[in-house]
Design a binder for these strands. Sequence first.
RNA 1: GGAGAGGUGGCCGAGCGGUCGAAGGCGCUGGACUGGAAUUCCAGUAAUACCCAAAAGGUAUUCGUGGGUUCGAAUCCCACCCUCUCCGCCA
Length: 427
Amino acid sequence: MLDPKLLRTEPGRVAENLGRRGVALDVAALAALEQRRKEIQIRTDLLRNERNSRSKAIGHAKGAGGDVEPLLAQVATLGQQLAAAEGEFAAVQAEVEELALGLPNLLHDSVPEGRDESANVEVRRRGEPPTFAFAAQDHVALGERGGGLDFEAAGRIAGARFAVLRGELARLHRALAQFMLDLHTGEHGYREVYVPYLVSRQTLTGTGQLPRFEPDLFAVKGERELFLIPTAEVPLTNLVRDSIVAADDLPLRLVAHTPCFRSEAGAHGKDTRGMIRQHQFDKVELVQIVRPEDSYAALEQMTGHAEAVLGRLGLPYRVVALAAGDVGFASAKTYDLEVWLPGQGRYREISSVSNCEAFQARRMQARWRNPASGRPEFVHTLNGSGVAVGRALVAVLENYQQVDGSVRVPDALRPYMGGLEAIGAAV
RNA sequence: GGAGAGGUGGCCGAGCGGUCGAAGGCGCUGGACUGGAAUUCCAGUAAUACCCAAAAGGUAUUCGUGGGUUCGAAUCCCACCCUCUCCGCCA
């Protein structure tokens, strides 16, 4: 949510910033709504004040043993007027809130202009895409040898956009997640957290997935309304919802390995081959809760933490700064990490690191007590994949493939693979 | 699933129709004491919205959430959520 004060006092500036994303804000309509809200609020407050002071008078009169009847008569019509005003106020409040919850975050000045991902700016590139003396295969061909990667079985069990992994491939998948967790907890100062995979509407509203992006989520049938998490960012970030964090506890650095569930409602026909885009995938997620003045340094640092995963795995990648039109709803600035996939001959997103500033904190009422002011102020929240496990598996398979279709195990993963040097060698 | 208890400020906890934004304690801030500190003592210390150019000040709202009763609700009624205890069941 945007700062309502800013929205009120500088709607022009807000509109201009949102315009960079291609989002139109009707300043005139907003001003009219604001005007109406103010009017009704003042009227309602006055009526309530009237009622309160008269009720108090009744209380005093009763205490003094006086006659209360005439006072009661005076208040008779107040109740109806007040009820009407309160109803009106609630309605206009709801309207304001709906508008506020639907607006994306303001962009940081450093975000490149541009309507979509074609305008993303490459920041740096690490590692050389491998050259093969043979025709490189994609992960589907490599994985399906020996039934390690089975889309047919997954289709039978759950339908399209699911995968079944078996044997060494399943282990490699697990090894990747373990390796990432150990790296972030052991060397980057994150605390490992285990979180619920089903969360409430309020939780998803806190991080910004709701109310706007409900079609992208899976909901669970049952008495209670619960949604499957689309990313661990949701439960991790909401850990500080409705709380005031002690200044000394910041920054909080949290990491969790969870499955993620996405309906991919708008992605028909996109990435239908392989396990690039699935309804269910694992991800190791990083979240930081920081002091506002530290959030942009934290963004660079977190990007580095995600890069370290790819670096250790020896995977070629590049870092891109997302263009205005490509930055996510809650984010003020985002870097994507794109890993080289020989099977596709191009870089594909494997991690996304975002600074949401106070956008989520404001929705969540997540604050810290600023020693400088002595008052509770909103924290800044950041999240980043460190990294997507499924796509990392794809990247390892394709980048480490050998002429016989086997796949060399990256050095960093060998301790997690019982020392195995290659998989799929003898299938 | 059965029976019961409870959700109050940064934290703990009293209050159970009017004088309650809420006793008391802890924590925090300032002051006194001290060479300095601890102890002790004194004082202050919730959030949000709105009015106001700002400060000061004022008004409103907030005692889990949402409804209701009432002139008036932390306090009474209803529903829901959450926590805890005991029993049962269970990985």
